[in-house]
Each structure stands twice: as C-alpha cells, then as structure tokens.
Amino acid sequence: MRTLTAIVLAGLGAASSHAERLGMAMTQLPQGDGGSITVFYPTRAAESAASVGPFRLSWAGDAAPAKGNGRLVVVSHGSGGAPWVHADLARTLVGRGFVVALPQHAGDNARDPSTPGPESWVKRPREVSGAIDRVGADPRFAPLLALDAVGVFGGSAGGHTALTLAGGEWSPARFRDHCMRHMEDDFSSCVGFTTLLGGDWLDGVKRWLARRVIAWRFSDDTPQRHVDARVKAVIAMVPFAADFDPSTLASPKVPLGLVIADKDVNQVPAFHVERIRQACEPRCEVMMRLADGSHGAMLSPLPPLEKGSIAEHLLADPPGFDRAGTLPLLNGRIADFFEKLLLPH
C-alpha cells in the first residue's frame, strides 16, 4: 500500500512534468484597422525554429493553447516597433502562465512609421483596450482567461501608453512646450529617429526646422486620457513622459512600476521617467535602475543595428552593460510584479 508521502510526491512529480512540457506558441489575430495582434501563449505542442526578418526565434505556430494562470498581459511596443523585439520578455511571462498580446500601433510600427509621436499616442491606449477585447473574444483564449485583471507593459512610446493607462494625462501642447524649452538637450525625443545633432553649422538649421514643424503640428492643449477598468497593473520602461502633467501620476490609478536606464540618450531620464518618479514615489515602484543601460535595453532580442546609424547611436548598449546577465533578471522581476498584482492569493 502506497504511503501518503509517496502519493503526494508522485503528484508533485506529475505536476512538475506537466509544467515542463509547456512551451510558447504564437498566433496573430486581425486588428480592426487592418493590422494584427501578435499573441504568445502557453502550449503543450513542440516548438520549432522561426525566422522573422533578422530575428531567429522559436515557438509553436498557431498551436492549441494550454491552460496557464488565466491572466493576460498586453505589451505596447515602442515607436516604429514590432513584436519580435519583446519575444524574450514574452517567453518569461508565458513560462509563468500568462498570455501575452502585442497590438500593432497604427502609423507607428515597423511596417508603417508614418505618424509617430502625439498623433499615435492618442490612439495607442485605445488600441490596448481593443487588444484586450479581441483576445478575450477569440474562442481559443476566452475559456482560459479572466479579463478583470490585466497587466500592461510598455517601453519608450509604449511606456507613454502605459503611463496613460496608469491614469496619467498629457497633451500635444505639453509636448510642444517641452521641445521648445529643451530641443538641444533632448533632441531625439522631439524629432525621433530622423536625424541627430552633429556639432556643426547644420545643427542650427535642424533645431529651427524642428521647432517650426512641432509648433505647427502640436498646439492642442486638451488633456488626453484613457483608462481601462480591466487594467490592474502597469509597468513603464524608459518612457517618453515629458508631456505628462506629473501631478496626474502622483497617485497612480493602479500599481505602477518604472524601469530606468541611466544612460538613455533617446529619452533623457531627467526630462522623462525621473519626473514621473519624483511625482509618484512612494506610490510607485522603481523595479530596476540600469546604471549602464540605455534606451535599447527595452529590446530583447536587440535587432541588428547598422554601424554609424541613428538607431545604433540611440539603441546600442553602452560599454559595460551586461545584457546577458541583466535582462533575464529584469524580465523575471516584471513577471514577479504581474504575478503579485494580478493573480489571486
């Protein structure tokens, strides 16, 4: 006759074996604007190698989902971004049982980068809400998910999305005012990936032209806001945040985590995430400060960066940044944050 201890240990071994069989699957759902929502999720199907552009990844394509922890995390990509640069974070979250959805932000993605900045930022939080609706309506995921507690992670422009969903209010005119005051010190935040200051006579022309275009396009001072009652925890990493009214995030509507990269040259922390931190602490949490990290730390895997390009200048890891050791730790802390706040205890 088997002892109680043996039965319990056998059960634990079976559960462990069951968990080890779960891998990551990927599918894409149609978005209402003609784009797509990329969904990563747990599966018992075998993974295989997958190539997407320069990325060499692994997943089980369109496989049957396995029951995870019943919670959804939506990831908002950065300006001109794609889902694949968040595949490592998605794998960590899927390994903890989460379903992970990445909407394609219209006019500000790798396929269509036509309207980045404030024009996209108005739409992005609503696209997150739309992704929650769409995943929740899919017959494969609907029986496996409870959408009363959803997590949101975003980096850079996606961090702007995340701060909005945490209750922050911003306006295009505040973006304009920031750029008028700090054009030279925070140039890439104002002009994006179009050009850099080169320390020559052309800099004056670049600054003059940028000011003219920004003043013409972004004069609306109407506060922009969008919250979704289903979103219960938010993480903003290296966010564009200079256009927020910090007082609106002094008491975030949901638990808010911040990730700061001290050597970020794309969104200089002093103008962006540090302003939010100063307003919301101790009601928000600095989950990790990357002393040697820059803006590209939000991307894993990091895409190949052309030597001498603007992207290399803004996204490449600074000397001394331990990507291999740091990012798995960061991804684990992100998963811990969402487990603590979204799962029933």
Rank of each mutant, 00 (worst) to 15 (best):
S51V: 15
Q31A: 15
F40R: 09
R21E: 13
R21S: 14
E20A: 13
A46N: 03
L22D: 02
R44D: 13
S36E: 05
L22P: 00
W59K: 07
Q28W: 02
L57C: 08
G53S: 06
T27Y: 05
A49W: 03
T43K: 06
A25C: 08
S17C: 06
Q31V: 01
H18M: 02
G23K: 04
A14F: 10
M24H: 11
I37R: 01
A49S: 12
G13K: 00
S36T: 05
S58D: 04
A46R: 10
R21F: 07
H18G: 01
A15T: 14
G35M: 12
S58R: 15
R56I: 03
A46C: 02
G53Y: 09
D33C: 09
A15L: 15
A49M: 03
E20N: 06
L57D: 07
S51W: 08
A14T: 10
G11F: 11
D33T: 10
L29N: 00
A49C: 02
S58M: 05
G13W: 05
Q28L: 04
S16C: 07
V52E: 12
M26S: 00
A49G: 05
G23R: 08
G34E: 12
L22A: 10
G23E: 03
R56V: 09
G13Y: 03
Q31D: 10
S17F: 08
I37G: 00
T27M: 15
R56F: 04
G53F: 10
P54L: 05
A14P: 01
H18W: 13
A46G: 02
A60M: 14
E20C: 05
P54E: 03
M26D: 00
M24R: 13
R56Y: 06
S17A: 15
P54K: 08
E47C: 07
P30N: 04
A46E: 09
A50T: 04
A14D: 02
L22V: 14
Y41P: 01
A14Q: 06
S17K: 01
P42A: 11
F55D: 04
E20R: 13
T43P: 07
G23I: 04
S58E: 09
H18D: 03
S51M: 08
S58T: 10
L22G: 02
A50I: 11
V52A: 09
L29I: 01
P54C: 05
G35I: 13
H18T: 02
G53L: 07
A45E: 13
A49Y: 07
F40K: 01
P42W: 12
D33S: 08
D33F: 10
P42C: 11
R44H: 13
R21H: 14
A25N: 01
T38S: 14
G34T: 10
G23P: 00
A46H: 07
G53I: 09
T27S: 12
G35H: 09
G34L: 08
L12F: 14
P54F: 09
G32W: 11
G35Y: 10
M26Y: 01
F40V: 04
G32K: 14
A49R: 13
